[in-house]
Every structure is written in structure tokens, then in C-alpha cells.
Simulated assay, not measured.
Amino acid sequence: MRYGRTLATAGCGLLVATAALSGCGLKSGSPLVDDVVPGSIGQGLPLKGASLIVTSKNFSEQIILGSMIGLAFKAAGAEVLDRTNIQGSIGAREAIKSGEADAMYEYTGTAWITYLGHDKPITDPLAQWRAVRDEDVKNGVTWLPASSLDNTYTLAINQANNAKYHLKTLSDVAALSNSDPSAVTVCVENEFASRDDGLLGMEKAYGMHIPASNIQKMDAGIVYTQVAKGTCLLGEAFTTDGRIKAMDLDTMTDNKHFFPNYNAAPELNSKAFHKYPAIAGLLDPISKRLTTQIAQQLNALVDVDGQDPHDVAKDWMIQEGFIKKG
């Protein structure tokens, strides 16, 4: 849920900033009890004696990524408190800033626009990450290198419909909307439909002409099923969503780079990182391995197959050789 990720109430952020541990979903957490030991990371137990807190927002991908951090810390010898699954973006963010939590995966576009207040995204993913890293240091936040996992917006179409229209890019959608406006029906969540950084801005940037009567607003989760059934030709989607592959949907390339890059990168409380700089050596190899396609696969195990996100993270970490069972 993009807006669940990037927009949260200011009141919730203030509650966390004043160290309240309730009301925003920030809980006392539970100790990570997994019996894991170093694999390719954590050799020599560089975090032995450390007590660290991991957090995440409250959707599948975030819980998976937060669990990966916790498991890496645990294998490296740390005692880990699990505070993943925090409601909204602001709660988890403020926990990192205040030191209520030490580490999480965050998205570069979310930080640049929502937290740091910029209107225009930076097209180059590396330049976007560098700009976030350099500006956020003043907030007591350290960013480690980003993954290529990019959970940004796209439009999805089922393969039966795309066999007819052969759409590959958002420019292709714009061309169809101008040549045959009645053919382009779009399912979107309510907020995305009305925002300048959502459907309205995308239409303007690409010169799309979609009749208002052809735009159907609904809950985000329903969009995928409606596109799969063909109720809508196109639907708002997120590039790492596991339902894209599970439902055999095609997605459009944002060839004009209208939407921000939402690359996942470790976001750390700077005091914690300065105390335990070995964290970088633990998380960098994980970030290098994470891709949009891997995220789709892992998210599908949770959102389609019903597996537990922590178990999905642990199985992947072991499969990749980062950690081993104790």
C-alpha cells in the first residue's frame, strides 16, 4: 500500500516523537529467539554483546525486510528486539530518529518526498539515494547503500487483454487513450486517483486522456483481482507486489520516469551505527542481492500463499547462505 507507506497522520508521528509506545502501533516488541549462526555474514560475531532493536512498517514486504535485518544481527551475536509491523510510515521513521529503534529498511523516494519535503524526485536511483543520505544525516539518520529493489508505481494489465493491445510503457497507454479513449478503463485506489503525484500527474506527464467515467475507485487490494478478471483494462499496482506474477499480469514501464524511485535501503539510527559500524558489513551483502523480482517472489509467499513473513525472510536468508540454522 503506497499511501499507507508514505502518508501517515502527523499526530501519530508526534506521539512517537514523545516516546509513547502505543497509539501509533509502536509496541514493546519481543526478543528474536531464532537459533541462527553466521553463514557468509556475521563471521566472528561482530555484534556480540550488542542489544539492537529492528522495526518496519506494517505490510508484508516491510516485515520481511525488517526480519532480514533482525536475523542478520542475531546471527552476528546481538540480542535483538523485534518491533516490526509498526502502523504507518511516520511511526517507524520516528522510532529510528529517536533511538526507540536502531534499524529498518526504508524507501528512498519516501524519505526524499515525505520526510525531507521535496516535490521533485531525482531520476537517477543512485543520485536519489545519495541526496537522501547526505540530507538525512542532520536528522541523526544514517543510510547504507540501497538495493535495486524498487517498489514504485506501475499500471498492470492481464495478459489476455495485452495480447490485443500490446502495451509495454505508460506512453503506449497514453497513445491508446488518445486513439481509443473508450478502451482505457482504469482501477485505482481512492487517494491515488486524486493526487498530483498519482493518476492526475501521470495523465498530465504522459498526455493521457482517460474519461472520468472510465476511472473506477476501490480499495488497493481489489484492484489486482479486477484487472485479472478484466473488469478494468489497467490497474494501479506496485512493482514488487507478489500478485503481479501470481495473477500473470503485465506491467507498464514508466519510460518518462514520472514516479519516484522507491529503492529499499537500510536506514539506521546514527548513534547505533557509530557504536556498531560492523552493521554495514552485515547488511550490504543482503541489499546487493535484493531485487524487484526477488521481492515479488517473497511477497507472493506471504500475500498469495499465506506464509509467515518472518519465516519467509529466514528461509531466504538461509537459502542464500547469509546465515545458517544453529
Rank of each mutant, 00 (worst) to 15 (best):
I244Q: 01
L116A: 05
S22P: 09
V227T: 06
T225K: 13
P277F: 09
K27V: 08
F192R: 10
I90P: 12
Y206M: 04
D241G: 10
P38I: 00
T240Q: 07
L7C: 14
F322K: 00
T185V: 05
P211H: 09
S98P: 00
Q296T: 06
L282S: 00
A92S: 07
L290M: 04
A300N: 01
S147F: 03
K324H: 01
I96R: 00
G201V: 07
T110V: 14
Q307C: 07
L81T: 15
N255Y: 04
N255R: 10
L52V: 05
D254P: 02
V173N: 03
G77R: 05
T169H: 00
C24H: 03
L149I: 02
D219A: 15
T142F: 11
K217M: 11
L14Y: 14
G242M: 04
D102I: 09
T84L: 04
E320K: 14
C232W: 03
G326D: 01
A174E: 04
K138F: 12
G70K: 02
K325F: 02
T169S: 02
P46S: 02
P145M: 04
G221N: 12
S147P: 05
E94T: 11
H209D: 06
C187P: 00
V186E: 00
R243Y: 09
A19T: 09
D196N: 11
I96Y: 01
Q293R: 13
G25S: 06
D284P: 06
G42N: 03
A75Q: 07
M104E: 12
N299T: 13
D124K: 00
F59T: 13
Y107V: 13
Q319D: 15
S147G: 08
S28D: 14
G39R: 01
G109L: 06
A265N: 00
N85Y: 08
L176T: 10
M247P: 03
P125G: 06
K271C: 01
A313L: 05
V184H: 03
I96F: 00
L282A: 03
Y165C: 05
A95W: 01
L200M: 12
T110S: 15
Y262M: 10
R243C: 11
G49K: 09
Q216L: 15
T225M: 10
Q216M: 15
T152N: 11
L149A: 11
P46V: 06
Q87W: 09
A228H: 01
A193E: 06
L268M: 02
N263I: 08
L298M: 14
N151P: 07
T123H: 10
V33P: 09
G117S: 10
P285L: 08
H257Y: 08
